[in-house]
Computed example of a mutant assay.
Amino acid sequence: MDFIQQKDLSCFNTLGLKSLANNYISLCNIKDLSGISDLLKPGVPYFILGGGSNVVLSEQIDQIVVHNQLKGIHLVQETDGAWFVEAAAGENWHDFVVNCIRQGWYGLENLALIPGTVGAAPVQNIGAYGVEVKDRLESVVAYDPLTQTEQVFNNEQCRFAYRDSIFKHEEGKGLIITAVRFRLPKQWVPVLSYSDLQQYEGARPQLTPQAILEAVCDIRRRKLPDPKVTGNAGSFFKNPIVPAQQYWQLKAQFQDLVAYEQPDSRYKLAAGWMIDQCGWKGRQLGNAGVHARQALVIVNTGKACAADIIAIARAIADDVMKKFGVLLEPEPVFVAARH
């Protein structure tokens, strides 16, 4: 375990924000958890950092930053119906997906190229192109540094919802996720509910898991900026879900409104479409801007700090509220200077 004071986190967040942690712990070995517990006493604020792809870091962070870099992937169990694969929380998510496909463990291909780590995936219940992590997740192993105990959460106990889980709430956000176990069915069924993937299906006689992975990567690269080139945190706002009555009222006013009916008869509105209608696509405010091809993505135009990101996010949300009467909620976690 490395304990460092005054650690530069600029290269540890995909927005590329300049940030300095007063106290930083690098967690690379599961055996170091007990030592971390000695530092994270009750009342001592701390923050768990993964791949930095879903965070807005302030310029100086007073909380102890625990950087989860645990590594390891292995097949835990094989049954007649499924493979059970476990990955350590610090594994790169996309690399893990690619590894699974190479091994013949299918089911995660629609989630390819999502930035971040395996441990962060259940926190946000990441999803793309018709699949969410909850659809494939068996369990989550987490460590409570305050009680020095390990807990295993099954799928139901994770309380998954749209971009949400128990790990984003008081009961679970202080836990250090150490590993995630996935159940990948042997009877593979491609998920092609999104029109972008259906276009690929029409161009090929058969879509294999590898072909879907490549298609998803191609789509994402065309639509989304590479954080290594342009600082960003992916989709910045959740797609708001509204009651049917509100949807129909909006539909009467905005005939081109983009929305998707949900199983409970509510509607998920396309936040990117609303932001675009408010004139934000390609627009800049201070040192931050909105991507020219995807209105859901806020980008660092070069020298942005957390205040710049917060300012443009608020301006966008205000405009959407004024025009549509709909509240936009950010996806990233905001890590303030003080807890």
Rank of each mutant, 00 (worst) to 15 (best):
I4F: 11
D8Q: 10
L9P: 04
L9W: 01
L15C: 09
K18M: 08
K18P: 02
D32M: 04
K41M: 13
P45D: 15
I48V: 15
I48M: 04
S53H: 03
S58W: 04
I61A: 03
D62C: 11
Q63K: 12
Q63L: 02
H67T: 10
N68E: 11
Q69M: 12
K71H: 06
K71T: 09
G72C: 08
G72S: 08
L75S: 07
Q77H: 15
A82V: 06
W83N: 07
W83V: 03
V85C: 03
A87G: 09
E91W: 05
N99S: 15
R102W: 05
W105N: 00
Y106W: 14
E109A: 00
L113R: 03
G119D: 00
P122S: 03
Q124M: 02
G127E: 13
G127R: 04
E132S: 13
K134F: 09
R136T: 06
Y143I: 00
L146H: 12
L146A: 01
T149Y: 06
N155C: 13
Q157H: 05
F160G: 05
F160W: 09
A161N: 11
R163V: 05
I166P: 01
E170C: 11
G174H: 15
L175S: 02
T178F: 02
P185L: 13
W188C: 01
S193M: 08
A203L: 10
Q210T: 00
E214C: 03
D218R: 00
L224Q: 12
P225N: 07
K238S: 07
P243S: 09
A244V: 01
Q246S: 08
L250Y: 12
Q253L: 14
F254S: 06
Q255I: 09
Q255V: 12
D256M: 09
V258E: 08
V258R: 12
Y260D: 10
Y260T: 11
D264E: 12
D264M: 08
S265P: 04
A271Q: 06
M274N: 08
I275C: 04
I275F: 03
G279R: 02
G286R: 06
N287V: 01
A288C: 13
A288R: 11
L296D: 05
V299R: 01
N300S: 07
A307M: 03
I309P: 06
R314H: 15
A315D: 12
A317F: 05
M321D: 14
M321C: 09
L327V: 14
P332L: 14
V333R: 12
V333D: 13
R338D: 11
